[in-house]
């Protein structure tokens, strides 16, 4: 069973979001990293880029598969995890902590409230048969 921390919000494309004031920290869930396994490259959006909710903003390459990274919210990218350039496997090791991918200055904090909470995401995973 993959881990689903209670204090985060989630998307159907398996990203998670945590807020720090008006900033949103974004990563992929434990379930997503487990499915991908062996992440070897992360192409994150550049700092300064304006992104829209549900936009494909990056690419995650694992040994056996490639996956798009969708933005759970709209806003402006203010930071990219510098660790992932040399140690992309950090996402596999600690998807909700050290393996965060980008920080975004939110355009509309209400978008955050509309995302699935932990119990909603758990139900979603169960409904998908995981």
């Amino acid at each position: 069973m993959s881990e689903v921390p209670e204090d985060l919000r989630y998307t159907k494309t398996h990203e998670w979001v945590r807020t720090e004031g008006t900033k949103a920290v974004i990563g992929i869930t434990d379930f997503a990293q487990g499915e991908l396994s062996d992440i070897v490259m992360v192409e994150a959006p550049q700092v300064g880029r304006e992104i829209k909710k549900e936009e494909a903003m990056g690419v995650i390459e694992a040994v056996k598969a490639v996956s798009d990274l969708y933005s759970p919210i709209s806003g402006k990218v203010i930071e990219v995890n510098p660790k992932l350039g040399t140690n992309p496997e950090t996402i596999n090791q600690d998807p909700f902590g050290e393996g965060w991918i980008v920080k975004v200055e939110m355009a509309d904090p209400k978008e955050f409230e509309k995302l699935m909470d932990a119990s909603g995401y758990k139900e979603f995973l169960a409904a998908e048969g995981h």
Partner: peptide, 8 residues
């Protein structure tokens, strides 16, 4: 089995 510890 697709994998055990990991592909790499």
């Amino acid at each position: 089995p697709m994998q055990f510890e990991g592909i790499i």
